[in-house]
Design a protein around this nucleic acid. Structure first.
Length: 542
RNA sequence: GGGCUCGUGGCCUAGUAUGGAUAAGGCACCGUCCUUCUAAGUCGGUGAUCGUGGGUCCAAAUCCCACCGAGCCCGCCA
C-alpha cells in the first residue's frame, strides 16, 4: 500500500459529504486544472455545485477552484506538492512511502522451453514479468519470480535425441543442441521412426528412468544457462527455478490425478476432464501425463507458499489458462489469488518467428547490435569519453533500450519488431530518459551553496513538481491493472516536464538557484525510483 | 466454421476499464533555438471522416449490433 499526501482523495472525501461521487469522477491529468471533477450528472445547477464545493473546501493546499463548463478544476499549490514529495524522501528515503503488505506474491515469467536461445518474441514475456515484479515489490507486496523449467515432454526429449543422433561425439554446446533439435523436426516427416523413438523415450521418462531423466536435465540445463545469461544482460534475475520433472519423479502428478479421479473420464486408457463441451486430457493412452496435469500440480505447489500468483503468458495460452483456472477453483479449492497476464505475439516485418525453423532474431544478437549502435553514437557525440566509459554507457543503453521499447507497449497489443525502431535513441526511448537524468546530475554537480528561498513557482517549475507529485497515482494504476506500460508512459511524461523546465529555468548562478536545486534533487530521486521499476539503468554521464 | 484479441495522421503508440472540454505523444518531413547548466534536447509547422456501416445517448475513439481486415487458439504438443 502506498502512503503519501493524497490530495485527490482528500478533496473527494470532502465532496462526498455533499454529493455522491466516485473516484472516477475526478481526473488527475486534465489540461485545465490539476484535478478535474466532472459534474454532468449532478442534480444541482453547476453554479450552485461550484459555490457549495468552493465554500466547503478550505484546504490550505488548494490554490484556487474554477468552474469551466461542466467541470470544476482544482489547482493545487506547487509548494505543497513539492513539500509532500521532499518530506517523504527526507523521512523515508522515498516518495511515496509504503506500508509493507503481509502477503507474498509470486510472478512466474519466461518459462521458455529450454530448446533454444531466447528471441525477441519470448523476451516480451521476461520484460513484462520482471517489470511487474519490480512494480509490485515497490508497491509494498513482497514478491519473487519463478521460472517453470520444462524438462519433460516431447520438446526437451527431441532436444536430447537431436544431440544423441546428430552430435553424439561432440561437446554439448548450445549451438550443437539447437542444430540437433532443428534436425529432429526437419527429418521427422521423412523418417517416421524418429517419432517412435521420441515416444519410447517419453514412456521411459515417465516410468522414472533415473539415468534418462538425469541426461535430459543436463541437456536442458545447458540451454537454460544460456537463457539465464541472456536475461542477466537485461538486468532480469529470476529468483527461483522449478523443474517440471520433479513433479513426475516424486509422484505429485500421480497423486493429483488420483485426487481428480471422481471428475476424470476415460477414452480408452486416456483420462480427461470435461469442461463445457471440451475434453481436456490429463494423461495419454500410454499413461504418461500431459502438460495440463503438470501445470495444475505446479500451481497447487505455488499456492502453498504464496498468496498471490501472477502468470505471464503468451496469448496462445489463453484457453489453457481459462481451463486451468476452472479446474483449480472448481475441483481443487485453489486458495490463492491468481492473475493471468497475457501479451500479444511479437512478429518481424518479414513475418513470424520460429525456433524450429531458425528464422529468429535472438536477444543476444539484438543486444550486440544495440551496443554497437550506441558506441557509434557516443564516439560521435562525446569524443572525449574513454573506451571504458563508452562501453559502460553502451551496455546500459542497450539493456535499457531493449526493455523500454518492449515494455512501453500495452501487453495485449500485437508488436512488430523493427530494427529502425530498436536502434532509435530519440523520442520515446530509454536514452531520452537517461539523458534527462544525466542533465539533472550535471547541474547538481555544479551547485554552489546559495541562499534565498522563494516560494513562487513559474509554470515550468510547477509542471515538473506536479509530475513528480503524481507518481504514486501512476504507480497505483500500474498495480491495479498489472500494466507496466503505464509506468513507461509516466516516465515519458515526467521527463518531458523536466526537459521543458531545463530549457526555461537556468539554475546555476540564478537567483532562484537554491529553490531549483531542491526541485532537481527530488526529480533525481523520483527518476531513480521509477527507472528501477522498468530496469532502466541511469548514469550520471551519458 | 466457432472462440478470444487487435484496427487511431505516411509509420509507431497513448486515450477505450469509468462515454463528456480543441483526439495526446514519438518517428519521418519542413522551419526555430547552443559565448547559461550535456542539442540523445526545446519550440513551431505539415499531416486523423479514430477499419466500415448502423444503433443507444443531451454527448461515442470509448457502449451495443453487423460487416471487413490482421493475429492467436480450437492436439492423447507445450
Amino acid at each position: 500500500m502506498l502512503l503519501f499526501d493524497d490530495y485527490k482523495k482528500d478533496i473527494l472525501e470532502e465532496i462526498k459529504k455533499m454529493y455522491s461521487v466516485s473516484e472516477n469522477d475526478m481526473d488527475i491529468n486534465g489540461d485545465y486544472g490539476d484535478f478535474t471533477l466532472k459534474i454532468f450528472k449532478f442534480q444541482d445547477k453547476k453554479e450552485e455545485v461550484y459555490n457549495k464545493i468552493r465554500a466547503a473546501l478550505t484546504k490550505d493546499y488548494i490554490e484556487k477552484i474554477d468552474l469551466q463548463g461542466n467541470y470544476i478544476n482544482f489547482f493545487i499549490r506547487a509548494d505543497k506538492m513539492l513539500n509532500a514529495v521532499e518530506s517523504s524522501i527526507e523521512t523515508f528515503g522515498m516518495y511515496p512511502n509504503i506500508f509493507q503488505d503481509t502477503s507474498k506474491a509470486l510472478i512466474e515469467h519466461t518459462s521458455s522451453n529450454p530448446t533454444g536461445p531466447i528471441h525477441v518474441g519470448r523476451i516480451r514475456n521476461s520484460i513484462i514479468g520482471d517489470s511487474i515484479y519490480r512494480i509490485i515489490n515497490r508497491f509494498g507486496t513482497r514478491s519473487c519470480t519463478q521460472y517453470f523449467v520444462n524438462d519433460s515432454g516431447k520438446q526437451v526429449i527431441s532436444l536430447y535425441l537431436g544431440h544423441v543422433k546428430y552430435h553424439e561425439e561432440e561437446p554439448m554446446t548450445v549451438e550443437n543442441l539447437l542444430d540437433g533439435y532443428q534436425k529432429i523436426y526437419s527429418n521427422m516427416e521423412k523418417d517416421p521412426s524418429i517419432k517412435k523413438e521420441i515416444q519410447e523415450l517419453d514412456e521411459r521418462y515417465e516410468r522414472g528412468d533415473r539415468e534418462l531423466i538425469s541426461n535430459i536435465q543436463k541437456t536442458a540445463a545447458i540451454v537454460l544457462e544460456s537463457i539465464t545469461a541472456t536475461l542477466e544482460k537485461l538486468g532480469i534475475h529470476i529468483s527461483t527455478y522449478v523443474w517440471e520433472s520433479n513433479f513426475i519423479l516424486y509422484g505429485d502428478v500421480a497423486s493429483l490425478i488420483n485426487r481428480l479421479s471422481d471428475e476424470l473420464k476415460l477414452e480408452g486408457n486416456a483420462k480427461y476432464l470435461e469442461i463445457g463441451d471440451k475434453k481436456i486430457f490429463v494423461t495419454r493412452q500410454d499413461g504418461t501425463s500431459l502438460y495440463f496435469a503438470r501445470d495444475l500440480v505446479y500451481h497447487m505447489f505455488k499456492s502453498e507458499n504464496f498468496d498471490w500468483i501472477i502468470d505471464v503468458l503468451g496469448e496462445d495460452h489463453k484457453d489453457h489458462a481459462k481451463n486451468l483456472d476452472y479446474v483449480l477453483h472448481n475441483y481443487l479449492d485453489f486458495p490463492s489469488r491468481i492473475n493471468y497476464l497475457f501479451y500479444g505475439f511479437v512478429s518481424l516485418d518479414t513475418g513470424k518467428m520460429s525456433t524450429r525453423k531458425g528464422n529468429i532474431i535472438t536477444v543476444n544478437d539484438l543486444y550486440e547490435k544495440t551496443i554497437e549502435e550506441s558506441e557509434k553514437i557516443i564516439r560521435e557525440k562525446r569524443p572525449d569519453y574513454s573506451e571504458e566509459t563508452v562501453g559502460q554507457i553502451s551496455r546500459a543503453v542497450a539493456s535499457s533500450s531493449i526493455r523500454f521499447n518492449i515494455v512501453k507497449i500495452n501487453a495485449n497489443k500485437p508488436l512488430t519488431f523493427r530494427w529502425s525502431e530498436a536502434l532509435n535513441f530519440e523520442g520515446d526511448s530509454a536514452p531520452y530518459i537517461m539523458y534527462a537524468y544525466a542533465r539533472a546530475c550535471s547541474v547538481l554537480s555544479r551547485a554552489r551553496n546559495s541562499t534565498g528561498s522563494s516560494k513562487e513557482y513559474n509554470e515550468y517549475e510547477k509542471n515538473l513538481i506536479k509530475a513528480m507529485y503524481l507518481y504514486p497515482y501512476y504507480l497505483q494504476n500500474s498495480v491495479d491493472f498489472l500494466r507496466a506500460d503505464i509506468m513507461a508512459g509516466y516516465m515519458l511524461y515526467l521527463v518531458k516536464s523536466f526537459n521543458e523546465f531545463y530549457l526555461n529555468c537556468p539554475v546555476i548562478g540564478n537567483e532562484e538557484e537554491q529553490k531549483r536545486i531542491g526541485i532537481l534533487k527530488a526529480f533525481k530521486r523520483i527518476m531513480e525510483d521509477s527507472s528501477e521499476l522498468l530496469g532502466i539503468q541511469l548514469l550520471e554521464k551519458i
